[in-house]
Design a protein around this nucleic acid. Sequence first.
DNA 1: CGCTGTCTTGAAAGGACTCAACGCCGGTGG
DNA 2: CCACCGGCGTTGAGTCCTTTCAAGACAGCG
Lengths: 241, 241
Amino acid sequence: MSHALISKLERHGPLTEDEKRVLQQITSRTAFYGPREAIVPEGTTTSHSTLFLEGFAIRYNHSLDGRRQITAFHIAGDFADLHSFLLKHMDDGIAALTPCSVAHVAHSDLKEITKAYPYLTRALWLTTLIDGAVHRTWLTVLGQMEARERLAHFFCEMRDRLEVVGLTEGNSYELPFTQEELGDAFGMSTVHVNRVLQELRTDGLITSRGRALIINDWEKLRQLGQYTPSYLHTDQKLERD
Amino acid sequence: MSHALISKLERHGPLTEDEKRVLQQITSRTAFYGPREAIVPEGTTTSHSTLFLEGFAIRYNHSLDGRRQITAFHIAGDFADLHSFLLKHMDDGIAALTPCSVAHVAHSDLKEITKAYPYLTRALWLTTLIDGAVHRTWLTVLGQMEARERLAHFFCEMRDRLEVVGLTEGNSYELPFTQEELGDAFGMSTVHVNRVLQELRTDGLITSRGRALIINDWEKLRQLGQYTPSYLHTDQKLERD
DNA sequence: CGCTGTCTTGAAAGGACTCAACGCCGGTGG
DNA sequence: CCACCGGCGTTGAGTCCTTTCAAGACAGCG
């Protein structure tokens, strides 16, 4: 099977054989997690980062009073906690939603890359910057949009992200998230997620049966969520020299 | 005067003379901006990043319907758009709130650093990761907390950030933001910001006259905002070798 | 002194939440 | 093979936080 990280980084520019070899090497230690299993508990200090090869996962934050904010949904190819390479202390946690296979990448290996592979370093840095760009977009979504728009935006975002890794079929894809998880990500109660989803269905924007989501009217959904994919920087080119 | 960036990076570990010299060099091109002036308009493609030496500024995002989300408040020492080094396209904009002096750092210089100064590279990367950690915290604030708590959290955060650069006097500091700006950052209307501030004052948590903010009851404010400063990673140590 | 941006206040409307109960479905175990 | 169970989705009603609209007060500045 193709390597999730290599193909992702190559969207930003070609890698040398040597660089690919290194990436293969440092991602060789793989592991498997079952649904709902914690991969990295919040508040821990880690010595490796988690690259997702398969499955869906979340990054989350529990506030002291027990409420949970989901700060990211992760899919194949995502380097979920690359930031722990330098931050060490994880203020957020990572948990599998569906069965997940991951590669554990040692921080020491990453450090070696920063010493010997400048281009690769920038490429990895870039992925964390894109992560930040998504966070900022979510801030705008949470701060300025109302419930219908938030979900509309998210469904558009997930379509484009899943498409990159080949997990869409036209405008439909698997979205194995519960309404509670959607609520925890977008600051809405489960009840309200449910009602908004019904509205979106009634208005003919989406169809969702079980875990499958179909976008029936991409253009309307896009407008409702004021979605523009530029913040994903999917094909952002990196200069080599 | 001491160098804002050097002293900030040295909190994560000592720099060599050589590294300091390089930092001095690449930050030598300074500029000045007046209040409300745009420093980097949103949607532009840039060839340099902005390091703040003095003054207050915001990072913001306009949605299509004209609403504005403020995604960050920037103070002295902040490398506001270091992410544009690799992302190039700025989905957000930067504007001065008060008179600001900044250093413009050429992306080409940053690239050279990634080639020759691995430790410095990691240090700079770290600052962008902290940026991301703050974004995630704000996501939690916006997604899970109500208005009183949001502002309480923010006042705590700003105290700690300003203290690092010596801009506090005990628990009081200058906070030259309008209520509209606070509202645009935390997803609340100006009117509601006003009312919540009055509550916080009435409850004896803060005093604010004009631009000056005094935290009267740090512990209560901290609890109200569920504030824990670990996400700022102020003294996060970086390994050199 | 008048202007303009900011802060303040009041009243009414609305979006979202909580509480609570019920239906559905797949999985488990007898 | 069927009954029970638990997680998830759905629905209704009442409440609350926050918004919008509108107008007035205040303060700094030219």
